[in-house]
Each structure stands twice: as C-alpha cells, then as structure tokens.
Simulated assay, not measured.
Amino acid sequence: MQGLPPNTPYKRNARPEFWQLSMRCCQLAGSVDVAFFFIFLFLDSPILAWINVISVTMYVCAYRAFKRRRNLLAFRLIQTEVLVHVGLGTVLIGWDSGFHYYLLMFVPALFVTMQARSAWILAACLWSYYAGLHVLMWYIEPLQPIPSNALLGVNIFNLTVVFFMFSYLALFYVITVTRAHNSLSQMATTDSLTGLLNRRQMIALTEKLLARHNRRPTNLTLMLMDIDHFKQINDRHGHDVGDRVLTAVSRLFQSLMREQDFIGRWGGEEFLAVLPDTNLEQAAETAERIRNTIQAMRLDSADTKVGVTLSIGITQYRAEEALSTAIARADLALYKGKSAGRNRVEAVQA
C-alpha cells in the first residue's frame, strides 16, 4: 500500500488481488444498501432507510479511494460503515435482523491486510463488540421494531448476502492458492530467461523416461547443442543482445521439436534435447534441420544484424546405462564438432 508510515500494522505486501476483491465487495455492499433503502421505506422505517443512504455514500467514497490506491482509507471507511451500521441496525430492529452476520466478514480481511499481532488484537475487539451487542439485546427491546415476518425476511436477506460473500471469498482463496502453486511450480521447473525446462527438471523427466525405457527398450537419442562463440556475442554486442539470442534460439527449438520431445537449458548457452522413439539417423536429420534454421536466423542490434551458429552432438542411449554416461558421450560428440570447425552435427555411437 502506498503512503503508509513505517510502523503501520497493515501489511505492505497484501496481495493486489485482495484489494481488487475488496473493490467488488464494496460495489456489492453498496448495492445491498440501496436495496435496504427501499426495503425500509416499504416497512415504514425512514430512519433505517436514510442510514442506508449514508452507507451508500461511504461505499462510493471507499470505492473511489480503492481506485486511487488509497487502500488504507478505503478499508477504514468500510470498517466504520459496517461497525456503525451493524450496531444501529441491531439496536433499532433487534438481534434477529441478522445484521451481526456482517461482522464475521472482517475476520479473514483482518488477517490478510494486517500483521498477525495487530490482526489478533482487532479480532478480539471485534469479538467483544459482537458479544456485547448480543448481550445488550438480551436486556433491551428494539427501538424501532418491525413485524416478525418482515424481521424474518431481513434476516434471510442478510444471511444470503453474507453467505454469498463468504463463498466469493472462498473462491478467491482457492483461485489465489492455485495460481500461486502453478507459478511456483513453473519457477521451479523452467528457466526464467528462455522458458525452457531447467537442468533439474530435465534430469527428473529424463530419469522417468529412462525407467520406462529400461523396462521396454526403444530408440532414445540425446542431443546436446551449444551456441558457437557465444562469449564473443556478449563481448561485442552486450549481454542484452546475448539474452535475446538465447531467447530467440529457444523459441526456434520449441517450434522445431516434436510434441513428445523435450528440451531444456542445460547451462549457459548449452541445451539438451531428449528424443524418444528416435534412432541416430532420424536424430541427425532433426539436428541438421535445427542447425540450418539457427544459421539463417538474424537479430537486429544497433546498426547491424547478429547471426549465430550451432554445434550439435548426438548419441543414442544404451539400456541400463547411467544418464550421466549418455550425456558425457553426447558432450564428446559436441566437442568433436567444435574441434572440427563448429556449426556442424556430430554423432557418437552408443
């Protein structure tokens, strides 16, 4: 939140999605108070009707504060409106009106927007207010009672609104947690720059594939690829261009590989691809197609165009061998290609 003093009890990192949810709840609450205005006019309770006019005004102000990212002001306006409105509604027409349900809405909001200690303190205050109203209405009669049937209708209306809002909060929580889980999962398995699988995920997926392969052997080929003279690209054109090269090359990899293949950034400018159900000859054809496509690629940089080439080493996996052994063999093929002048495909037999 903007504009909060250093010692504020409110969380600076409260999720933006929560404030968006608060804006929607603000709109809903304002609409509910508009409905209450007409309900209490119909029930011949003008004081309660005009209380809802003030409430709608406060929700409009809170909504505008949210729009201006003055979230603390908006939250305090909503707090004030609900606390006062609940108290007045309960005292005027009775505990059975169900206005006290709205106080429960603050419990999750407190713990989302505030530091834990402050949230617990205010939750205790909220409980005291709630219990105090309940006890008070045991000893006094409503100041402006309405017919019992109308009172039941108001109770059901309030219960329905709060039920809907709690359901909305639960849905928001599930969606937020799911998004966070997916985001963390993606961060843990993909390379942040290229979007390809990272080294750890490549090893994990390949080990699973090898376990199936060892039970039911098929052709399986590993392809290790390295961008030629990548350090010179960084030195001559800058690391920003180097990052663009890595990103562009990675996109081409993804477009040229089959759906059942998977490829990841193995480290720096080096990439590893695993091709199931592919023999050495088929892999060599794929590697040549990739090499030619990369060679034809050009990236704009200042007043020049940057071109890159690719050296590729391929090998076929041998049943029951360690993954590291197969990768070392692909690395040997890659080294032979580099030694022979780069921009070429070399294969080493299993």
Rank of each mutant, 00 (worst) to 15 (best):
Phe111Trp: 10
Ile175Trp: 10
Val177Gly: 00
His134Met: 12
Ala131Asn: 11
Cys61Asp: 07
Leu299Asn: 03
His100Met: 11
Phe164Ala: 15
Val84Ile: 15
Arg251Tyr: 05
Leu136Asp: 04
Asp331Ala: 00
Thr194Met: 05
Ile312Gln: 00
Leu92Cys: 08
Gly87Pro: 04
Ile51Val: 13
Asn234Phe: 03
Ala328Met: 03
Tyr130Cys: 09
Leu323Val: 02
Val348Gly: 01
Glu346Pro: 00
Asp277Asn: 13
Phe75Ile: 05
Arg236Phe: 04
Asn198Met: 08
Leu275Val: 07
Met114Ala: 13
Met297His: 07
Gly313Glu: 01
Gln144Lys: 04
Phe164Glu: 03
Phe42His: 15
Thr309Val: 07
Ala283Ser: 11
Arg258Phe: 02
Leu323Glu: 03
Arg24Tyr: 15
Leu197Tyr: 14
Arg291Trp: 03
Phe106Asn: 02
Ala328Glu: 09
Tyr101Asp: 06
Gln254Phe: 03
Ser97Gln: 06
Ser128Met: 14
Gln27His: 15
Thr218Arg: 13
Ser22Gln: 14
Leu184Asp: 08
Phe75Asp: 05
Ala333Lys: 00
Thr221Phe: 04
Leu334Pro: 00
Val112Gly: 00
Leu193Arg: 09
Val348Lys: 00
Leu334Lys: 00
Val53Asn: 07
Phe42Val: 14
Thr247Glu: 11
Ile156Val: 15
Val56Asp: 04
Arg244Cys: 08
Pro46Ser: 10
Glu288Ser: 06
Ala287Lys: 03
Asn198Thr: 10
Arg344Thr: 12
Val56Ile: 13
Glu321Gly: 00
Trp50Gly: 04
Arg117Trp: 12
Pro145Ala: 10
Val60Gln: 11
Ile51Ser: 09
Gln186His: 15
Phe106Val: 03
Asn71Pro: 07
Leu122Asp: 13
Phe111Met: 09
Val249Gly: 04
Val177Lys: 14
Asn343Pro: 03
Phe36Cys: 11
Tyr317Ala: 05
Ala35Glu: 08
Trp95Ser: 09
Ala211Lys: 13
Gly89Tyr: 02
Asp228Arg: 06
Ser255Thr: 11
Asp243Cys: 07
Ala65Met: 11
Ala188Val: 06
Ser55Trp: 04
Phe36Leu: 13
Ala322Thr: 05
Thr309His: 04
Tyr102Ala: 15
Arg329Thr: 00
Cys125Asn: 13
Cys25Thr: 08
Arg344Val: 02
Leu334Arg: 01
Thr57Trp: 04
His239Lys: 06
Trp50Tyr: 14
Gly30Arg: 08
Gln316Ser: 13
Asn149Ile: 11
Thr194Val: 07
Ala150Tyr: 09
Leu73Glu: 09
His181Cys: 04
Val249Thr: 10
Ile54Lys: 02
Ser185Gly: 14
Glu270Tyr: 03
Leu48Trp: 07
Trp120Phe: 13
Ile312Ser: 02
Cys25Gln: 14
Val308Met: 06
Trp120Val: 12
Leu197Gln: 08
Pro217Phe: 09
Asn214Gln: 12
Gly313Pro: 00
Thr178Glu: 15
Gln20Glu: 15
Phe166Ser: 01
Ser167Gln: 10
Thr90Phe: 03
Gly30Pro: 04
Cys125Val: 15
His239Ser: 05
Lys305Pro: 01
Glu320Thr: 14
Val348Glu: 04
Asn52Pro: 09
Glu259His: 10
Phe37Asp: 04
Thr57Lys: 02
Phe166His: 10
Leu43Val: 11
Ala170Gly: 11
Gly98Lys: 06
Gly268Asp: 05
Arg258Glu: 05
